[in-house]
Every structure is written in structure tokens, then in C-alpha cells.
């Protein structure tokens, strides 16, 4: 079954556990080695095609996160991923090492792509390798859609030990106040999310699904089951919700139902039945079963699609 996650930084499961209950996996806001107060307000702005945010990785720091937040998350969240960030490979490794001993952490997402802080100096693969050295937990590399060649970065991340990809993060954008023609955000630019990101995310998933065998969490502008289905067809195994959660806290339940309906309209029993359809390849059962993250319960659907086509 396709899992529905939240995009990191788009939900606080402790402030709104009822919303988190609708998800299969909860992903935390990015945690860095040291506490960060985040950027000065104004931090958000809306345009016709999406929203900008410039939160600046506000977080309590890994030490307080582990001591004060993780125990409560462990109690409430059945499946928990922790997003970690930093400014060097060492920062990422420090956070991963601090999380390694906690059984409640099912996976670690490496946020190597936040547009609102100075970009990590190290290459994504160096960060993955450093993290791989200190933890045995599955590592998901969250890549930026602004990378000139996201597929080659995905391949490098895979070789460095990533177990999956989160695709994709926001794109840098700017919105001006129409009255003053000055930037609305205190940091001027911010990360663009929402509908505008939808085709960008689809392209990133499509490229990486051809370049690597890693399972992909697709995200970017998903507002309906049809949008989620498109990401799965482009090669995503799972789907994450971001901006849609702000306006519709019932989105996890709604989109799950819509996703099933969208699949059924296409004559497949579940959304997994359209997996990789956009790529035009016909995966054999053996190829699929050898892919990490693809579970056996998907196989009947895939076989059915192959038979039907």
C-alpha cells in the first residue's frame, strides 16, 4: 500500500496529533545540532501559484529534541522519521549518531536542500556517507529540485548508502508587496511550495526513478488523489503532503480516499497499480522484488497492469 507522509516542517504532531493520526508516517521538522530560533517575521507569503516560507529551520537542537520531544513522539506516533539538517557533513553525522539508539526512529531524512539557510557546503553524497558511518537506520536523502542534474546526485546518494529519496524540497522564490514593491518576507526570498511545485516534483521523481532503484517519497503540490497518483505513476513509492495540510487538516484522510478512487477509475485495485506507468517500462516481478522498499503486496497489482496492457 502507498504510504502517506507529511513533508517535513509542514506538521507538528504534538500540536495536532489528530492530523498526524491520518498519516502512515510522521516526519519531524528538521532538527539541527544546535537550537535555532529561525528567521525573523514575516515568514510566509502567498501568490497565485503557491506560497513562500522562510522559517529558517527553527528547532530546539538535537539534544533538547531527543530529551524533550522524542519520548512524547515515540508514545504517540506509530511510524516516525526524523528530518535532520546542518551546515556540514559533520553536523548531519552528529544528529544521526544522537538518534541511532532510539528504536522509535524508523528512518532519518537528510535535509540537504533547505533553501532558507546557507546551503550545506558538502556534497549530498558526502553527507549521506558521513551519516551512513554513524547509523544503521534507513537514510532518505531529500534533494532540491534546483539541482542541475538531480538524477546524478540521486545516484551518488545511493552509492553513498542512502536507502531512499525524498523528492522534492521547495524552490527559491520571491514575492513583492504590490503596494510597496518590496519583498514581503524578512529574508526577501523563501521556499516556494504548493501547486507551482507540482510539475517540478513530478519531473524530479521521473528523473530519479529512471536513474536509481531507490524507493522515492514523492512530494510537491499534492492537493488531490489525482496529484498523488501522478507521482506514483512517475515512480514514487510513497507520497507526502505539505502545503495542502495548512488549508485542509483533513487532507490525509481525504487524499487517501481520493487516491483509491483515482486508481479504481483506471481499472487497478490500488494506487500501487500505476507505479512507474509514466516511465513506459514494464518491470518484471523479479526486478520489482529486488528493489528495496517495494513490498511483495504490490506485486499482484503490478502483474495485473502488465497483463492488462
Amino acid at each position: 500500500m502507498t504510504r502517506i507522509l507529511n513533508a517535513s516542517g509542514c506538521l507538528d504532531a504534538l500540536a495536532a496529533p489528530e492530523v498526524a493520526d491520518g498519516l502512515d508516517v510522521f516526519v519531524t521538522k528538521t532538527v539541527t545540532p544546535l537550537p535555532r530560533t529561525g528567521n525573523d517575521p514575516i515568514r510566509i507569503a502567498e501568490s497565485d501559484v503557491g506560497m513562500l516560507n522562510s522559517i529558517g529551520l527553527a528547532n530546539p537542537g538535537i539534544e533538547r529534541f531527543v530529551a524533550e520531544y522524542l519520548p512524547e513522539l515515540a508514545e504517540r506516533i506509530p511510524s516516525l522519521w526524523v528530518s535532520v539538517g546542518g551546515f556540514s557533513a559533520e553536523d548531519f553525522a552528529l544528529c544521526c549518531a544522537a538518534l541511532d539508539g532510539y528504536a522509535c526512529v524508523d528512518a532519518i531524512e537528510l535535509n540537504v536542500s533547505c533553501p532558507n539557510v546557507t546551503a550545506p557546503a558538502d556534497e549530498a553524497s558526502a553527507i549521506v556517507a558521513a551519516a551512513r558511518g554513524v547509523t544503521s537506520k534507513p537514510l532518505y536523502a531529500k534533494l532540491s529540485p534546483a539541482l542541475p542534474d538531480i538524477a546524478s546526485v540521486a545516484q551518488a546518494a545511493e552509492q553513498a548508502g542512502a536507502r531512499g529519496l525524498s523528492l522534492t524540497n521547495t524552490l527559491r522564490g520571491l514575492i513583492l508587496d504590490p503596494a510597496t514593491l518590496e519583498p514581503i518576507l524578512a529574508t526577501a526570498t523563501g521556499g516556494l511550495s504548493g501547486p507551482a511545485l507540482r510539475p517540478v516534483a513530478l519531473a524530479a521523481v521521473y528523473a530519479c526513478a529512471q536513474a536509481t532503484s531507490l524507493p522515492i517519497v514523492g512530494m510537491g503540490g499534492v492537493e488531490t488523489g489525482e496529484h498523488a497518483l501522478a507521482l506514483i505513476a512517475a515512480g514514487a513509492s510513497d507520497v507526502a503532503l505539505g502545503t495542502v495540510l495548512f488549508g485542509d487538516p483533513a487532507a490525509p484522510h481525504r487524499i487517501r480516499t481520493e487516491l483509491e478512487e483515482a486508481a479504481q477509475r483506471r481499472g487497478v485495485a490500488s494506487a500501487a497499480g500505476v507505479f512507474r506507468m509514466a516511465l513506459g517500462d514494464e518491470l518484471s516481478a523479479s526486478e520489482v522484488s529486488s528493489k528495496p522498499g517495494i513490498r511483495g503486496d504490490l506485486l499482484p497489482e503490478l502483474t495485473k497492469v502488465a497483463v492488462g496492457s
Binding site: 516542517g9 509542514c10 506538521l11 507538528d12 500540536a15 495536532a16 492530523v19 521538522k29 530560533t37 529561525g38 525573523d40 517575521p41 514575516i42 515568514r43 510566509i44 507569503a45 502567498e46 506560497m51 516560507n53 522559517i55 527553527a58 502545503t243 495540510l245 495548512f246 488549508g247 487538516p249
Partner: peptide, 27 residues
């Protein structure tokens, strides 16, 4: 008041200086 995307603590957009720290106004 502050600009808010969600109103329920999810977006961290509505930060206001409270007790000398940037905190979510909606929370």
C-alpha cells in the same frame, strides 16, 4: 495578529517575539 498559513501549529509562519523568543502565535 500575524500572517498564518495553518492556525494549528503546523507551519511556524506566525512567529512573534513572546518571552523574548520567537514563538508561534497560534499556539
Amino acid at each position: 495578529e500575524a500572517p498564518m498559513a495553518c492556525g494549528y501549529g503546523a507551519c511556524f509562519g506566525c512567529a512573534v517575539r513572546i518571552d523574548g523568543e520567537l514563538k508561534r502565535l497560534c499556539v
